Amino acid sequence: MLKHLAADFDLWLCDIQGHGDSDHGGRFHGWNRSAELAVEAFEAGRAPFGEVPRFALGHSFGGVLTSLILAKHPDLFQRAVLLDPVLFPPALIGVMAVSEVLGLHRRHTMARKSAARRKHWPDRAAAYAGLHGRGTFKGWDDAALWAYVEHALKDVEDGVELKCRPSREAEIFSSYPRRLWSSLNKIVTPTDILHGQHSYPFVAKAVARVTALNSHVRAQVVAGGHCFMQQTPEDSAERVRGFLLP
């Protein structure tokens, strides 16, 4: 998808703590601090581009971080697109908060699945074969899956492994952003949320809630799951482009 967007946009990409080529960084800093660190990195790195229109794009965890950034820095971006952001409904956040107090927060489904994710393969071809058509990778475009195998894995002594440790992903999904809904209400940047028809059930409910509460946010359902942009990268890029460059 990013390859398709590169024809019209200069892409500035940010690897959050423990993702991509960023350091693992010890203990997870949390959703809200991660959003502020992304802003610090963006401010430090955007000078070479000059004073040009700035747009925000984020998926899943990154989509939520983007929403927190939009709320706190309303003048930073002209428009934004959130791709299937994991916006936890207030009731779910309440359950997660209680679970955190009781020490049960690592037991819910998303955290368990993340912690159990396979992280090592003998080579990239084996990784591609092992991921193809399975779980969250089901239905991915071949070029998108190869891009994942190329960029999300690193070489190690006995093969390749995920750059983002499954334990870090589990830490993320066993925690939650603070003041999420008050932040969503503060967004004034024109924002479009694209969410998959077959994504997590709570995503559609949360998106319906935020669009009802905030007139600056609109939404559209697209074919596919949580990673629909990997299933239909060209169509997804066209939808993003259509909103950011009306």
Score class of each variant (00 low, 15 high):
L2D: 01
K3F: 11
K3H: 14
A6N: 11
D8R: 14
L11E: 13
W12Q: 13
C14M: 15
D15S: 13
I16R: 14
F28R: 01
H29E: 15
S34L: 10
A35V: 01
V39S: 02
E43I: 15
G45D: 05
R46Q: 12
V52T: 06
A56F: 08
G58P: 05
S60T: 05
I69N: 00
L70Y: 02
H73L: 01
L76S: 00
Q78F: 02
R79T: 00
L92D: 13
V98M: 11
G103T: 04
R106I: 09
T109V: 10
T109I: 08
S114T: 07
R117F: 12
R117A: 13
K119A: 15
P122I: 00
D123F: 10
D123M: 06
A126E: 10
G130F: 04
T136W: 08
W140D: 05
E150R: 14
C164T: 07
E171L: 13
S174C: 06
W181R: 12
S183C: 07
Q197K: 11
S199A: 10
F202P: 11
V207Y: 02
V210K: 05
T211C: 05
N214I: 09
S215G: 10
R218I: 00
A219P: 05
A223N: 10
Q230S: 14
T232Y: 12
E238T: 11
V240S: 02
R241T: 08
G242L: 03
G242I: 05
